Lab assay of single mutants.
Amino acid sequence: QGDIVVALYPYDGIHPDDLSFKKGEKMKVLEEHGEWWKAKSLLTKKEGFIPSNYVAKLN
């Protein structure tokens, strides 16, 4: 089961498979690959890669 993270900063995706998000948006982490994680937005239901240093895990 994936962790839920919250965006600390907004992110505008650079690549087509990036997931753009707004500050405060919550996402479910699907896979962790070093600095880039695959996640699904709980708001938009879209999936893509996010920079892990832009988010914090919720406990």
Rank of each mutant, 00 (worst) to 15 (best):
G48L: 00
K22R: 13
W37L: 15
E32P: 07
V29T: 04
M27D: 01
Y11F: 13
K28E: 14
Q1W: 15
W37T: 08
E47W: 06
G13P: 07
E25C: 04
L42C: 13
W36N: 07
H33C: 14
K45R: 12
A7Q: 00
Q1I: 15
F21T: 00
D12G: 08
K40I: 14
V29L: 15
N53T: 13
W36R: 15
D18L: 09
G34Y: 04
V55S: 01
Q1Y: 13
P16Q: 08
V6Y: 11
E31K: 08
E35R: 11
E25K: 00
I4H: 05
G13N: 04
S41G: 02
E32V: 15
F49C: 12
L58W: 12
V29M: 06
G2T: 11
E25A: 03
K45I: 05
L42V: 05
G34H: 05
D12S: 12
D12M: 13
Q1L: 14
W37H: 09
E31M: 08
V5N: 01
V29D: 02
G13L: 03
S41L: 04
P51C: 07
E32Y: 15
G24Y: 06
V29C: 04
K46S: 07
F21Q: 01
T44H: 04
P16Y: 08
F21E: 01
I14H: 11
Y54H: 09
E35L: 14
S20Q: 06
E32F: 14
M27N: 00
S52E: 05
P16I: 09
G48R: 00
K46Q: 11
A7D: 01
A39K: 00
K46E: 09
F49A: 04
K57V: 12
N59T: 13
V55N: 00
L43Q: 08
N59L: 12
A39F: 01
G48Q: 00
L58V: 13
H33A: 09
S52L: 06
G34Q: 05
E32K: 15
L8H: 03
S20T: 10
E32R: 14
W36A: 06
W37P: 05
E25I: 00
E47G: 04
M27Q: 01
E35H: 15
G2L: 10
K40N: 04
L8R: 06
N59Y: 11
F49Y: 13
V29A: 03
S20K: 07
P16D: 09
G34M: 05
E35S: 13
K26D: 02
P10S: 15
S20N: 06
E31W: 09
L19P: 01
E47S: 12
N53Y: 10
K22F: 07
K57H: 11
G24F: 06
D3A: 14
N53F: 09
D17R: 13
S41H: 09
P10I: 05
K23D: 05
H15W: 11
H33I: 10
N53W: 15
A7W: 01
A39I: 07
A56N: 06
D18T: 14
G24L: 03
F49I: 08
K22G: 09
F21D: 00
E31A: 11
D18I: 08
K46F: 06
S20A: 08
K45D: 14
E31V: 10
L19R: 02
H15F: 12
M27S: 00
E47H: 07
K26S: 07
I4K: 03
D3K: 14
D12T: 15
N53H: 13
S52P: 12
Y54S: 05
V5K: 00
A56I: 15
Y54T: 04
D3P: 10
N53M: 10
Q1K: 13
D12R: 14
K40M: 14
L30A: 03
M27V: 02
V5L: 05
L8S: 03
W37N: 05
D12N: 12
K40H: 09
T44F: 03
K28M: 15
G2D: 11
H33F: 12
M27C: 03
E31L: 08
I50F: 06
K45G: 15
G48P: 01
F21M: 04
S41N: 06
E32I: 15
L8V: 07
I4A: 03
G34S: 06
M27T: 00
P16A: 10
K23C: 11
E32N: 12
A7K: 00
E25T: 02
V5H: 04
H33Q: 10
Q1G: 12
Y54G: 03
Y9C: 14
K28D: 04
V6H: 04
K28P: 00
W37A: 07
G48C: 02
P10N: 15
Y11Q: 01
L30K: 04
L58Y: 11
K23R: 11
K38V: 11
Y9M: 11
D17N: 14
L30G: 03
K57D: 06
K40V: 14
D3H: 15
K46R: 11
H15D: 07
E25F: 01
N59D: 13
W36S: 07
G24D: 06
K45V: 05
L43D: 10
I14G: 09
N59E: 12
S20Y: 04
F21I: 03
L43M: 10
G2P: 08
A56M: 14
V6W: 07
D18E: 15
H33M: 10
D3F: 15
S52W: 09
K22M: 11
K40T: 09
D12L: 12
S52F: 07
L42M: 09
L8Q: 05
K26C: 13
E47T: 14
L8F: 04
K45E: 14
S41I: 04
H33S: 09
L8M: 08
L19C: 03
S52V: 09
K40A: 11
N59W: 10
G24S: 04
D3G: 11
V55L: 04
K22I: 14
I14Y: 10
K45C: 15
E31H: 08
K22E: 10
G13T: 05
S20D: 06
I4Q: 04
G48D: 00
P16K: 12
L58R: 05
L19W: 02
Q1S: 12
W37R: 06
G34V: 04
W36F: 12
F21R: 00
M27I: 05
V6P: 00
K46C: 10
L43V: 11
L43R: 12
L30T: 06
E25M: 02
G13F: 02
K46P: 00
A39Q: 00
A39W: 01
K57W: 12
